[in-house]
Computed example of a mutant assay.
Amino acid sequence: MRPITYRFFSVAVGFACISLSSVGQAADAYPDHTVRLIVPSSPGSTLDLVARTFGPPLSKELKQSFVVENKAGASNITGTREVVVAPPNGYTIGMISSNHAVNPSLHKRLPYDSIRDITPITIIGTTPLVLVVPKNSPYKTVDQLITAAKAHPGKINYGSAGTGTALHLAALMFTTKAHVDMMHIPYKGGNPLITDLMSGQIDFAFLGMPSVLAQVNAGTLHALAVTTLKRSTSMPNVPTLDESGLKGYDYDPWIALFGPAKLPSPITQKLQSEVHKILHRPDVEKQFAVQGFVATGSSSVDALATIKNDIKLSADLLKAAHIKAMD
């Protein structure tokens, strides 16, 4: 029986070597035709801007088209599912944001598992948020805003792009750390939110730096603080919330590149390596800086750890705010 077992083992090893060799050869040839880059939000969104910034250089480096396809809807779920159900061959990849980590706490019946059904490729970078008020707001500092909120519980309001979005979670972290009660007004997207904020219909909001940098520079909105532990190079004169008295406040939404589950490691590593090179190109860094986006790059392992950590953070914030998952 031992010789038979040995021969069986040899055959198994042989098949394994052939399989690994095939995967390696496929990665060497990848990509040999057009790659779909799924963006689960509408054109002009931060996700879309980031995809269209690094997509063309990636096409040039890998000598194949990376075509951006916008699949907006259902809190980014529609577009994410498009990637999840695709064959794990690298020809359908996608973008996700911090909202991906919120959805498990907001939706009881997601059409995929937010961890098991994806292969994180890299965290492309982060989109620092800014606490902004209308230009004629009586609140010129974070301390003034908190003092007013404590004097008038539930009277001061803030807007977000919807319940459970990164903008909402930043505000929940703010109210929790400041120990204040404020009224949340959810909007269907960022554009109507910014319009009402500029006209003074709402008192303040946390907004992505790429979406309000121009208004802040023009003086139509006033920035009180940024949500990161360090000041932003795009707004160096704006203090952090940590500096403004909310010690330890740090909320920095991310954007990641991902593929379906079981995406072969050589393809994952190839994409990761090429994206990292592009992120450090002076022309790309300049484009991102203008947008207020901070390019970082990470390993697949670190990207997975970030997603898992934010799933827990989001769950804790929503639970503390008594926000339950929808059917």
Rank of each mutant, 00 (worst) to 15 (best):
A170C: 01
P186Y: 03
F174Q: 00
T165V: 08
T176Y: 11
N191D: 15
N217H: 14
A223R: 06
I267S: 02
T175I: 09
A205E: 11
G189S: 10
A171I: 00
F174I: 01
M183C: 08
A218I: 09
A223V: 04
A205S: 14
L279W: 05
F206T: 01
A205M: 03
P210K: 11
Y187E: 08
H168G: 00
D242K: 06
S232Y: 10
L246I: 09
E285H: 12
A171F: 01
Q272P: 07
M198G: 10
A256G: 07
P236G: 05
N237G: 13
V284H: 09
A166N: 12
A214D: 15
V212F: 10
V180E: 04
S160M: 01
A256E: 02
V226S: 05
Y251N: 07
Y249D: 01
V284E: 07
L271N: 04
N157H: 05
I194K: 11
T165N: 10
I185W: 06
K177S: 10
N237T: 15
N217R: 15
E243M: 13
K177I: 08
L279H: 05
V180M: 04
I278Y: 01
A170G: 07
T240R: 03
L193D: 06
K177A: 11
I267T: 10
L221W: 09
A214L: 12
D250Y: 10
V226R: 05
F204Q: 02
V226P: 02
L197A: 03
I267L: 06
G219A: 03
M182S: 03
T195N: 12
A170H: 01
G219P: 01
Q201H: 15
P236M: 07
L197T: 03
L169T: 04
S160G: 03
G219I: 05
M198K: 15
G259E: 04
G208E: 15
Q269M: 13
T240S: 08
A223L: 06
P210H: 11
L279Y: 05
L167E: 11
M198C: 09
H222A: 12
R231H: 09
V275R: 03
K262V: 10
S160A: 05
L213T: 10
P186A: 01
K177C: 02
G200M: 06
S265H: 13
A223T: 04
A256T: 00
N237R: 14
K270A: 07
D203C: 01
V284S: 08
G245K: 09
V275E: 02
L271M: 13
K270N: 04
P253K: 06
L279I: 06
S211A: 15
D242N: 13
P253E: 05
T240P: 04
T227M: 01
A178L: 06
G164D: 08
G190Y: 15
F206D: 00
G219Y: 03
V212C: 08
S160I: 00
P266T: 05
L207N: 11
L221I: 07
M183H: 14
A214V: 13
D203G: 07
I278Q: 01
S234N: 12
S211K: 12
K277T: 11
Q269I: 10
G189F: 11
L263G: 03
A223P: 05
H222P: 06
V238P: 03
S265C: 04
V284M: 08
H280C: 07
M173G: 13
L229Q: 13
Q269G: 08
K177W: 05
T195C: 02
Y249S: 00
L169R: 08
I156H: 02
F174K: 00
N157S: 14
